[in-house]
C-alpha cells in the first residue's frame, strides 16, 4: 500500500495533534511505511526557535521521539514560510512533492460554517494535493 506518509505538525500545538499522530504511526507500522514529519517554520524568531536551524533541530528531535515511541522509521523535514500566516497550505503542498509522500495524514477541526468561505488547511490540502489525503477529525 502506501510507502511514505507525510504528517504536517505544528510544533507549537502538538497537544492538538493527538489522533493524527497515532493514526499515522499505526498505519506506518501496519504497512512498514516511512513517516516524514513536516514542520513549517519562520525566518524570524518565534516561540519555538530563534532561527530556522534551531527549528529544524527541534523537529528532528520530535521525529526521533515518534520513531522510538511507535517503533517506526521516521524522518523530519523542516520548511520555511516567509509569511506563515497565509502560506502554510502552499508550503505543505510543495513539501508533499519534495519528499515524494504518497499519503498525507493530517489533523483538522470539525468543519463549520466558516469553512465554506475559508477552507481549513486540511480542506485545502485535500482539495489540491496529488497524493492521497487522510483528514483526521477531533
Amino acid at each position: 500500500m502506501f510507502k511514505h506518509l507525510m504528517v504536517p505538525v505544528d510544533l507549537a500545538h502538538t497537544e492538538s495533534l493527538g489522533h493524527a499522530l497515532d493514526t499515522a504511526a499505526d498505519l506506518a507500522a501496519h504497512w512498514g511505511a516511512k513517516v516524514t514529519y513536516v514542520g513549517v517554520g519562520t525566518t524570524t524568531p518565534g516561540k519555538l526557535a530563534h532561527n530556522p536551524k534551531e527549528f529544524a533541530e527541534k523537529l528532528k528531535a520530535f521525529a526521533k521521539a515518534q520513531a522510538v515511541a511507535h517503533a517506526i522509521e521516521a524522518d523530519a523535514h523542516a520548511t520555511i514560510a516567509h509569511d506563515p500566516t497565509t502560506d502554510v497550505d502552499d508550503v505543505l503542498l510543495h513539501a508533499i512533492d519534495e519528499i515524494g509522500a504518497d499519503l498525507v495524514v493530517m489533523q483538522s477541526h470539525l468543519p463549520g460554517l466558516l469553512d465554506y468561505v475559508w477552507p481549513s488547511n486540511g480542506g485545502k490540502i485535500a482539495g489540491h494535493a496529488k497524493a492521497s489525503v487522510l483528514v483526521v477529525r477531533g
Binding site: 523530519a76 523542516a78 520548511t79 519534495e98
Partner: peptide, 16 residues
C-alpha cells in the same frame, strides 16, 4: 538522519 533533512531551509545559518 540524512543531510536532506534541511531541505527548504534557506541554508545553514552559520555564526551569529
Amino acid at each position: 538522519m540524512s543531510d536532506t533533512d534541511n531541505q527548504g531551509i534557506p541554508e545553514p545559518e552559520g555564526r551569529a
